[in-house]
């Protein structure tokens, strides 16, 4: 849900000594991203995509640094981060399994898949395994209704899934073969 309230006033922020937004990144963004938008604020989403891709979440420290870099308020960054489902403030697993739960997938039996993954990985949607390998998500329509049921494994879409197929994908990911970056 995009609009859940967060206890930001009393929140403590984890910090590390080395910055997330390094000078090299700043130089790269100044060259590649900033010229594409009329305002600095406009560059926020592409930058957040890069951070999410790199760290599998958006640390609060990074939000502060991005705010400084783009000369906007940290609140504006938090606003955007919390609104979009793809940006997370908690670290996702190395392999994010996003099972589509929208109408075409539901009438084509997505429930079987979801229950199977739930049991096999002992996960509920939005949870990550203790070893940080898998995160299970239920997603809204992935735009591939003709090949329902579908699921995203990181940024790769898998179509016409069966329990055998999804088991195989999980096995591959466990063995570390699923070397897809998280986008």
């Amino acid at each position: 849900m995009a609009w859940t309230a967060k206890p930001s006033a009393t929140q403590r922020i984890e910090r590390r000594a080395e910055p997330y937004v390094t000078a090299a990144l700043q130089a790269k963004w100044t060259q590649d991203i900033l010229p594409k938008y009329a305002t600095k604020h406009g560059a926020l989403m592409p930058i957040l995509h890069e951070i999410q891709h790199e760290h599998r979440f958006i640390p609060y420290q990074a939000m502060l640094e991005v705010a400084k870099f783009l000369e906007i308020t940290p609140a504006a960054v938090l606003d955007t981060v919390t609104f979009y489902d793809e940006f997370t403030t908690e670290q996702l697993g190395q392999c994010v399994i996003g099972i589509c739960q929208s109408i075409a997938c539901e009438v084509c039996d997505h429930k079987k898949l979801l229950d199977h993954v739930r049991q096999r990985l002992d996960l509920e949607p939005r949870e990550t395994t203790d070893d940080g390998k898998f995160t299970l998500l239920t997603m809204e329509c992935l735009g591939s209704c003709d090949t329902a049921p579908v699921a995203l494994f990181n940024d790769v879409l898998h179509e016409k899934l069966t329990i055998e197929k999804i088991d195989q994908l999980i096995d591959e990911a466990k063995a570390g073969n699923a070397a897809h970056g998280h986008a």
Binding site: H41, M45, D79, T80
Partner: peptide, 8 residues
């Protein structure tokens, strides 16, 4: 709004 970097 989303292109401007804000919430949609």
């Amino acid at each position: 709004e989303a292109i401007e970097g804000k919430r949609g």
